[in-house]
Protein backbone atom coordinates (compact mmCIF):
# COMPACT_ATOMS: atom_id res chain seq x y z
CA UNK A 1 0.00 0.00 0.00
CA UNK A 2 1.35 3.37 -1.05
CA UNK A 3 0.89 5.60 1.98
CA UNK A 4 2.25 8.70 0.31
CA UNK A 5 -0.47 8.37 -2.32
CA UNK A 6 -3.16 7.78 0.32
CA UNK A 7 -2.07 10.94 2.11
CA UNK A 8 -2.06 12.91 -1.12
CA UNK A 9 -5.54 11.57 -1.91
CA UNK A 10 -6.75 12.68 1.51
CA UNK A 11 -5.37 16.17 0.90
CA UNK A 12 -7.18 16.28 -2.46
CA UNK A 13 -10.50 14.99 -1.05
CA UNK A 14 -10.62 17.00 2.18
CA UNK A 15 -11.80 20.23 0.48
CA UNK A 16 -15.00 18.34 -0.44
CA UNK A 17 -15.96 17.73 3.19
CA UNK A 18 -17.50 21.16 3.90
CA UNK A 19 -19.74 20.93 0.82
CA UNK A 20 -20.90 17.42 1.76
CA UNK A 21 -21.69 18.58 5.29
CA UNK A 22 -23.42 21.74 4.07
CA UNK A 23 -25.61 19.79 1.64
CA UNK A 24 -26.52 17.25 4.31
CA UNK A 25 -27.17 19.76 7.08
CA UNK A 26 -29.22 22.19 4.99
CA UNK A 27 -31.42 19.49 3.53
CA UNK A 28 -31.89 17.72 6.86
CA UNK A 29 -32.97 20.97 8.57
CA UNK A 30 -35.33 22.10 5.79
CA UNK A 31 -36.48 18.51 5.34
CA UNK A 32 -37.36 18.19 9.02
CA UNK A 33 -39.61 21.26 8.90
CA UNK A 34 -41.34 19.93 5.80
CA UNK A 35 -41.54 16.43 7.32
CA UNK A 36 -43.29 17.78 10.40
CA UNK A 37 -45.77 19.59 8.17
CA UNK A 38 -46.53 16.44 6.17
CA UNK A 39 -46.79 14.34 9.35
CA UNK A 40 -49.33 16.79 10.80
CA UNK A 41 -51.26 16.70 7.51
CA UNK A 42 -51.19 12.90 7.51
CA UNK A 43 -52.42 12.74 11.12
CA UNK A 44 -55.08 15.43 10.71
CA UNK A 45 -58.41 13.83 10.01
CA UNK A 46 -59.10 16.16 7.08
CA UNK A 47 -59.19 13.82 4.10
CA UNK A 48 -57.84 16.16 1.36
CA UNK A 49 -54.79 16.85 3.55
CA UNK A 50 -54.33 13.16 4.39
CA UNK A 51 -54.59 12.26 0.72
CA UNK A 52 -52.08 14.91 -0.30
CA UNK A 53 -49.56 13.81 2.31
CA UNK A 54 -49.98 10.17 1.38
CA UNK A 55 -49.53 10.86 -2.32
CA UNK A 56 -46.42 12.93 -1.61
CA UNK A 57 -44.83 10.23 0.52
CA UNK A 58 -45.76 7.52 -1.98
CA UNK A 59 -44.27 9.35 -4.96
CA UNK A 60 -41.04 10.43 -3.29
CA UNK A 61 -40.40 7.11 -1.60
CA UNK A 62 -40.98 4.95 -4.67
CA UNK A 63 -38.81 6.83 -7.14
CA UNK A 64 -35.00 6.97 -7.07
CA UNK A 65 -33.42 10.11 -5.68
CA UNK A 66 -31.27 10.43 -8.79
CA UNK A 67 -34.43 10.69 -10.93
CA UNK A 68 -35.70 13.44 -8.63
CA UNK A 69 -32.40 15.30 -8.92
CA UNK A 70 -32.42 15.06 -12.72
CA UNK A 71 -36.06 16.07 -12.86
CA UNK A 72 -35.31 19.26 -10.96
CA UNK A 73 -31.92 20.08 -12.47
CA UNK A 74 -32.49 19.16 -16.12
CA UNK A 75 -36.26 18.73 -16.27
CA UNK A 76 -37.38 22.19 -15.17
CA UNK A 77 -35.48 23.86 -18.01
CA UNK A 78 -38.08 22.43 -20.41
CA UNK A 79 -40.50 25.20 -19.41
CA UNK A 80 -39.70 28.61 -20.91
CA UNK A 81 -42.10 30.21 -18.40
CA UNK A 82 -39.78 29.01 -15.64
CA UNK A 83 -36.59 29.88 -17.49
CA UNK A 84 -37.65 33.52 -17.69
CA UNK A 85 -39.07 33.69 -14.17
CA UNK A 86 -37.50 35.24 -11.09
CA UNK A 87 -36.84 31.72 -9.71
CA UNK A 88 -34.44 30.80 -12.49
CA UNK A 89 -31.23 32.18 -10.92
CA UNK A 90 -31.84 29.70 -8.08
CA UNK A 91 -33.12 26.75 -10.12
CA UNK A 92 -30.23 26.92 -12.55
CA UNK A 93 -27.66 26.44 -9.78
CA UNK A 94 -26.76 22.77 -9.28
CA UNK A 95 -26.22 23.52 -5.58
CA UNK A 96 -29.79 24.69 -4.97
CA UNK A 97 -31.23 21.95 -7.19
CA UNK A 98 -29.40 19.35 -5.10
CA UNK A 99 -30.62 20.95 -1.87
CA UNK A 100 -34.18 21.07 -3.20
CA UNK A 101 -34.15 17.42 -4.30
CA UNK A 102 -32.53 16.17 -1.09
CA UNK A 103 -34.94 18.24 1.04
CA UNK A 104 -38.06 16.99 -0.75
CA UNK A 105 -36.75 13.43 -0.58
CA UNK A 106 -35.87 13.40 3.11
CA UNK A 107 -39.17 15.12 3.98
CA UNK A 108 -41.07 12.10 2.64
CA UNK A 109 -39.08 9.60 4.69
CA UNK A 110 -38.95 11.90 7.72
CA UNK A 111 -42.70 12.45 7.81
CA UNK A 112 -43.27 8.70 8.09
CA UNK A 113 -40.73 8.49 10.94
CA UNK A 114 -42.41 11.36 12.78
CA UNK A 115 -45.84 9.85 12.19
CA UNK A 116 -44.61 6.55 13.61
CA UNK A 117 -43.29 8.37 16.65
CA UNK A 118 -46.54 10.25 17.29
CA UNK A 119 -48.62 7.11 16.83
CA UNK A 120 -46.43 5.15 19.22
CA UNK A 121 -47.33 7.43 22.14
CA UNK A 122 -49.22 5.09 24.49
CA UNK A 123 -52.90 5.90 24.67
CA UNK A 124 -52.85 5.69 28.45
CA UNK A 125 -50.48 8.67 28.59
CA UNK A 126 -52.91 10.78 26.60
CA UNK A 127 -55.84 9.62 28.71
CA UNK A 128 -53.91 10.44 31.86
CA UNK A 129 -53.18 13.92 30.53
CA UNK A 130 -56.83 14.44 29.66
CA UNK A 131 -57.81 13.23 33.11
CA UNK A 132 -55.52 15.93 34.53
CA UNK A 133 -57.43 18.47 32.47
CA UNK A 134 -54.91 18.99 29.65
CA UNK A 135 -56.13 19.32 26.10
CA UNK A 136 -55.32 20.66 22.68
CA UNK A 137 -52.00 22.32 22.19
CA UNK A 138 -50.90 21.94 25.81
CA UNK A 139 -51.38 18.18 25.64
CA UNK A 140 -49.51 18.02 22.34
CA UNK A 141 -46.64 20.18 23.55
CA UNK A 142 -46.17 18.64 26.99
CA UNK A 143 -47.04 14.98 26.45
CA UNK A 144 -47.28 13.85 22.84
CA UNK A 145 -44.35 15.72 21.32
CA UNK A 146 -41.67 14.83 23.89
CA UNK A 147 -42.65 11.16 23.86
CA UNK A 148 -42.83 11.12 20.06
CA UNK A 149 -39.40 12.74 19.71
CA UNK A 150 -37.86 10.07 21.93
CA UNK A 151 -39.51 7.33 19.92
CA UNK A 152 -38.59 8.81 16.54
CA UNK A 153 -34.99 9.71 17.35
CA UNK A 154 -33.26 6.43 16.38
CA UNK A 155 -35.18 6.32 13.11
CA UNK A 156 -34.41 9.92 12.35
CA UNK A 157 -30.75 9.30 13.15
CA UNK A 158 -30.70 6.63 10.47
CA UNK A 159 -32.34 9.02 8.05
CA UNK A 160 -29.64 11.65 8.71
CA UNK A 161 -26.93 9.08 7.93
CA UNK A 162 -28.78 8.12 4.76
CA UNK A 163 -28.81 11.81 3.82
CA UNK A 164 -25.05 12.11 4.27
CA UNK A 165 -24.72 9.13 1.91
CA UNK A 166 -27.26 10.63 -0.47
CA UNK A 167 -25.25 13.84 -0.88
CA UNK A 168 -22.88 11.75 -3.02
CA UNK A 169 -25.48 11.93 -5.79
CA UNK A 170 -24.95 15.69 -6.02
CA UNK A 171 -21.65 14.85 -7.73
CA UNK A 172 -23.64 13.65 -10.73
CA UNK A 173 -24.85 17.21 -11.33
CA UNK A 174 -21.29 18.58 -11.23
CA UNK A 175 -21.01 19.44 -7.52
CA UNK A 176 -17.50 18.79 -6.27
CA UNK A 177 -18.18 17.25 -2.89
CA UNK A 178 -16.25 14.23 -1.61
CA UNK A 179 -17.55 11.75 -4.18
CA UNK A 180 -17.23 14.26 -7.01
CA UNK A 181 -13.61 14.90 -6.13
CA UNK A 182 -13.02 11.17 -5.76
CA UNK A 183 -14.45 10.43 -9.23
CA UNK A 184 -12.27 13.16 -10.71
CA UNK A 185 -9.20 11.80 -8.95
CA UNK A 186 -9.96 8.25 -10.13
CA UNK A 187 -10.18 9.36 -13.74
CA UNK A 188 -6.89 11.26 -13.36
CA UNK A 189 -4.89 8.53 -11.63
CA UNK A 190 -6.72 5.26 -12.48
CA UNK A 191 -6.19 4.19 -8.89
CA UNK A 192 -9.79 3.50 -7.94
CA UNK A 193 -9.06 1.26 -4.98
CA UNK A 194 -6.85 3.69 -3.07
CA UNK A 195 -9.17 6.63 -3.74
CA UNK A 196 -12.15 4.51 -2.66
CA UNK A 197 -10.45 3.61 0.62
CA UNK A 198 -9.75 7.24 1.50
CA UNK A 199 -13.17 8.55 0.43
CA UNK A 200 -14.92 5.67 2.21
CA UNK A 201 -12.94 6.36 5.38
CA UNK A 202 -13.98 10.03 5.31
CA UNK A 203 -17.68 9.10 4.99
CA UNK A 204 -17.34 6.50 7.75
CA UNK A 205 -15.75 9.06 10.04
CA UNK A 206 -18.56 11.58 9.39
CA UNK A 207 -21.24 8.96 9.97
CA UNK A 208 -19.52 7.69 13.10
CA UNK A 209 -19.57 11.17 14.63
CA UNK A 210 -23.26 11.59 13.74
CA UNK A 211 -24.10 8.19 15.25
CA UNK A 212 -22.38 9.15 18.48
CA UNK A 213 -24.22 12.48 18.66
CA UNK A 214 -27.57 10.71 18.15
CA UNK A 215 -26.67 8.14 20.80
CA UNK A 216 -25.82 10.93 23.23
CA UNK A 217 -29.12 12.66 22.53
CA UNK A 218 -30.96 9.38 22.98
CA UNK A 219 -29.26 8.83 26.30
CA UNK A 220 -30.18 12.29 27.52
CA UNK A 221 -33.79 11.98 26.38
CA UNK A 222 -34.44 8.63 28.05
CA UNK A 223 -33.60 9.12 31.72
CA UNK A 224 -36.57 6.90 32.60
CA UNK A 225 -34.94 3.89 30.93
CA UNK A 226 -31.70 4.15 32.87
CA UNK A 227 -31.14 2.14 36.07
CA UNK A 228 -32.96 4.12 38.69
CA UNK A 229 -31.09 6.09 41.31
CA UNK A 230 -34.09 5.90 43.62
CA UNK A 231 -36.56 3.00 43.70
CA UNK A 232 -39.57 5.22 42.88
CA UNK A 233 -38.08 6.63 39.71
CA UNK A 234 -38.12 3.20 38.07
CA UNK A 235 -41.86 2.97 38.10
CA UNK A 236 -42.65 5.28 35.21
CA UNK A 237 -42.42 2.78 32.37
CA UNK A 238 -45.08 1.69 29.89
CA UNK A 239 -48.59 1.54 31.27
CA UNK A 240 -50.28 -1.81 30.79
Amino acid sequence: MDFAFLLETFVRLAPGVPLTLRLALTSVVFGMVLALLFAVMRLSRVWPLVLMARAYVFIFRSTPLLVQIFLIYYGLSQFPELRYSALWPILREPYWCAILALTLNTAAYGSEIIRGGVQSVPHGQIEAARACGMGGLLLFRRIVLPLAVRQALPGYGNEIILMVKATALASVITLMEITGLAAKLISETYRAIEVFIVAGAIYLAINYVITRIIQMLEYRLTPYLRPAATPTAARTGEPT
Binding site: A168, L169, T179, I186, A192, Y203, L204
Partner: peptide, 18 residues
Protein backbone atom coordinates in the same frame (compact mmCIF):
# COMPACT_ATOMS: atom_id res chain seq x y z
CA UNK B 1 -23.87 0.84 5.40
CA UNK B 2 -21.73 3.88 6.13
CA UNK B 3 -20.44 4.80 2.68
CA UNK B 4 -22.40 6.05 -0.35
CA UNK B 5 -23.47 3.41 -2.86
CA UNK B 6 -22.26 5.58 -5.71
CA UNK B 7 -18.72 5.25 -4.38
CA UNK B 8 -19.03 1.44 -4.41
CA UNK B 9 -20.26 1.55 -8.01
CA UNK B 10 -17.28 3.70 -8.99
CA UNK B 11 -14.99 1.24 -7.20
CA UNK B 12 -16.32 -1.72 -9.14
CA UNK B 13 -16.54 0.02 -12.48
CA UNK B 14 -13.16 1.75 -12.44
CA UNK B 15 -11.42 -0.47 -9.90
CA UNK B 16 -12.04 -3.63 -11.87
CA UNK B 17 -9.67 -2.45 -14.59
CA UNK B 18 -6.90 -1.99 -12.02
Amino acid sequence: RGIPDLLVIYLFYFGSSA
